[in-house]
Design a protein around this nucleic acid. Structure first.
Length: 551
RNA sequence: CGGGGUGUAGCGCAGCCUGGUAGCGCAUCUGCUUUGGGAGCAGAGGGCCGGGAGUUCGAAUCUCUCCACCCCGACCA
């Protein structure tokens, strides 16, 4: 066994500096290179507990995020620039989100429909602000055929008379269609949602957080009055908030968007802002009151009860696969993903501990029965989702794989448990070695409660973190304590959200963005305390804003 | 679109300066040993070295030229 040249280690220097130093001293070089090539620490040193994910959140948050996406088997980059492959465990998460949201949409009177992927250029052209907002990031289809050139290569042929854009969002095409549907006040309201993919030519992409193509839902509604449209916008905003808190166990700040941050073409945008564990904000969803902007550009008119032709009022609202990224960064730890039970694709995994072939069949049979027994229980109005992991792998590998995937509960069942009629249970919201032994009856009795405990626990943790990192500030010095970098590259307070009385304008927002990379995430609905003054301009405060760095 | 970098086995890399047709770790497969935790030992399979052209007896290595991707900026759910 000889030591490999140091250069071999350089690529991972950043993540593994600490480990490398230890390894060098101990000259366990084979262990080190093994660890490096797996992108995971294999240290056996007690002084530094081994984590399933390397680096840790504290060491390198962005890299930790990428590793979790990889190690939890959620998604990977694809051969297509900027586009991801969502793998079954990641897609399962999205399916759970879809299911829960869809129910809420239906419960509030909406129905689903589907509109075309391609949008003729002239439609996009119609709304000026909208054009300006999306023009730079559209993929454009210009040909409708492929031909082979002299060298046998496929080349686009037959140019389209009018190019089409791949929808970056569907306001324009849906507006065009709605214009044909709406004639009378009797046709209103229209309450439609679409589950779809959209495409935006993003410069820099990160799995789930910003990819060129992503999956989302977009609700598009039409109303007879401004008040109805406003009510719809706020209703769906609230539906999102309930979903995020109840299912994703994520607390959010809710507020209006400033003119700078508003959706192109909207009169008012309302957002939900969640805090990630690095103190940065992630916009989890938006609900827009589009006023008459799109109904005028698409000519959505109706004959009202009073015999007058009027332009309708429209709204749109959406959330995307980006929420998966938010979920990872809100709940994950240094051992990987942690999933709230309500949206976990599987809530419980049974890992049979097989010692030798002798008892294997009986054990698997025993576990299958246990799985169906547990699967017949219900939690949060649904059957408990149980997975039996029968794969022919070593137990330890399976154990850690499920830790990294974030499954809420792991059960181990070996011959010993089988004989005793017990299981060994581990909760993902507790230490990876913390286990309890339960009889089947105890388990069946306690499981639903335990799932809810995990759900509540995750929310409470996220909420505590959010509150801990939310600072109420009244002046610029307090702002800079959070966001201005000192000599060591960090502020004197941990990065987080600042809530400030505000009387600023777009120019001030631009300045804060330029100097501190901080933006107004949203304008809270709560008014500023009487007599309070803007933290930056010292003018009488108009409103309270949430300031943060964001994804 | 500006600045920098990288393309060698599934993944991560070495080899290139000083040309002699390819190596390491992990992963994979097989056997034995292990087994309440992310194994051990032994063996095996896997690469026209991003594409093309040139120099040369000979190119992963030198020259030219394309192409792709990554990082930093401008943009964003």
């Amino acid at each position: 066994m000889f030591a490999p040249p140091f250069s071999k280690l350089t690529f991972a220097k950043k993540q593994l500096q600490c480990q490398i130093q230890i390894f060098f001293r101990k000259t366990i070089m084979s262990a080190a290179s093994k660890a490096l090539s797996q992108g995971a620490s294999k240290t056996t040193n007690n002084a530094m507990p081994r984590t399933a994910i390397t680096p840790t959140r504290a060491d390198n948050y962005p890299e930790w995020y990428q590793q979790v996406v990889d190690q939890a088997d959620l998604a990977e980059t694809s051969p297509v620039r900027g586009c991801m492959v969502i793998k079954p465990w990641g897609y399962g998460l999205w399916e759970q989100m879809q299911q829960k949201l869809d129910k809420r949409f239906k419960d509030t009177g909406h129905v689903n429909a589907y509109f075309p992927l391609l949008i003729p250029l002239r439609l996009l052209q119609k709304e000026a602000d909208h054009v300006e907002g999306f023009a730079k990031e559209c993929a454009v289809v210009t040909h409708h055929r492929l031909a082979t050139d002299a060298s046998g290569k496929l080349v686009p042929a037959s140019p389209l008379e009018e190019p089409m854009v791949i929808r970056p969002t569907s306001e324009t095409i849906i507006g065009e269609v709605y214009a044909g549907w709406v004639k009378s006040y009797r046709d209103l309201p229209i309450l439609i949602n679409q589950w779809a993919n959209v495409f935006r030519w993003e410069m820099r992409t990160r799995l789930f957080l910003r990819t060129a193509e992503f999956l989302w839902q977009e609700g598009h509604t039409v109303h007879a009055t401004a008040a109805e449209a406003q009510a719809e916008t706020e209703l769906m905003w609230q539906v999102y908030a309930d979903f995020m808190q109840d299912c994703l166990a994520m607390p959010v700040f809710m507020g209006r968007k400033s003119a700078n941050e508003r959706f192109p073409g909207a009169v008012e945008s309302y957002s939900l802002e969640a805090m990630m564990q690095d103190g940065k904000a992630l916009q989890m969803g938006t609900s827009h009151n589009l006023g008459q902007n799109f109904s005028k550009s698409a000519n959505i008119q109706f004959l009202d009860k009073d015999g007058q032709h009027k332009h309708a009022y429209t709204t749109s609202w959406g959330v995307s696969t980006r929420m998966v990224g938010g979920l990872i960064m809100a709940h994950g730890d240094d051992d990987g993903l942690i999933l709230p039970p309500r949206i976990a694709p599987s809530q419980l995994v049974i890992i049979p501990v097989v010692r030798d072939a002798a008892g294997e069949d009986a054990l698997l049979d025993h576990c299958s029965k246990l799985a169906s027994q547990l699967g017949s229980l219900s939690y949060a109005g649904e059957s408990v989702r149980v997975h039996l992991d029968k794969r022919d792998m070593r137990g330890g590998d399976k154990f850690w794989e499920w830790v990294k995937r974030g499954i809420p509960i792991r059960l181990e069942v070996g011959l010993r448990e089988m004989e005793q009629g017990t299981v060994t249970l581990y909760r993902r919201d507790q230490g990876s070695k913390d286990r309890i032994t339960l009889t089947h009856d105890q388990l069946a009795q306690q499981l639903p409660t335990m799932l809810q405990e995990i759900q509540d626990n995750l929310f409470a943790r996220a909420k505590a973190y959010q509150q801990d990192r939310t600072y109420h500030i009244t002046n610029r010095q307090e702002f800079e304590a959070i966001f201005a970098k000192g000599e060591d590259g960090v502020g004197s307070k941990p990065l987080g959200f600042a809530i400030a009385p505000w009387a600023g304008d777009g120019a001030l927002e631009d300045a804060l963005k330029k100097d501190f990379a901080v933006t107004v995430r949203c304008i809270l609905t709560t008014p500023p305390p009487a007599g309070s003054r803007c933290a930056f301009t010292d003018q009488p405060a108009r409103e309270m804003v949430v300031l943060a760095k964001s994804y």
